[in-house]
Amino acid sequence: MKYRQILDHVVLLFGVFLMMGPLVVAFLTSTYNHVTIHRQGMQFGWGGQFLDTYQTVLTQQGGFSGEITGLLMTQNSIILGIGFAVGKIVVSMTAAYAIVYFRFRAGTFFFWVIFLTLLLPLEVRILPSYEVAQQLGLLNSYTGLILPLIASATGTFFFRQFFKSVPEELLEASRIDGAGPIQFFWDILVPLSRTMMAAIFIIMFVVGWNQYLWPTIMTTEEQYFTLVRGIQSVMQQMIGADIPYYNEALAMAMLAMLPPALVILIFQRMFIKGLVEQEK
């Protein structure tokens, strides 16, 4: 039994080494001077240039042309993350409410239309989606960045499932009390869904923050770049350079990683609940 326990710890410690090792090395390397990294490779110690590098990246240039700073990109990422999460919750909650709580002919039809979107991940309709956004004049705008991403089926299915599990007596009781559909939604259903909404918000914030393909083709003006989108420009600049600014590129990667990681760690319980509930 004792032996078994030790073995489990060995497996887990090895797992932690595997998962965290690359991140630790990346972080430590980002505290070194780029010339040192170029000469000696990635580093496993503390380089002492932490403040310099991160200050440059945050306030002067986001690792490349200098038109946008890391702070502005962080701001864009936050706008995308929160806009995506809030938009998705609002749109999918109202849609799920209509589907579950109303008797109307077209309900099933609309349900299948929403279902259809599962078949069309952004990646397979990327070129025509770009053309549509272009025709609507949405390139290089926050609306164009957020709107096309929020209407997929996952959120609607999630809330549909949750609403179905809400006891029917609640609706009957509030009807006897004379509540209309809007009042029932606002006074009963929304407060009941609070935990669900928070769980979905956390997941969707991370998903929104981490969007890459759509922001990459949508935004060509640097003022709309998010951190994750900026990674691509960092890379392009690195390839061309004599001695690439490895430290700044890694600092950007760390910045792009930190907020979603913190959100997940702080709200760990809720995050896991939301993630696992989604499968049901």
């Binding site: 887990l12 965290m20 923050w209 990683m257 990681a261 959100v263």
Partner: peptide
């Protein structure tokens, strides 16, 4: 510690 990497965007 094992969950941390979930938060990382694929391009990062």
């Amino acid at each position: 510690l094992l969950m941390w990497v979930y938060a990382i965007a694929p391009p990062v």
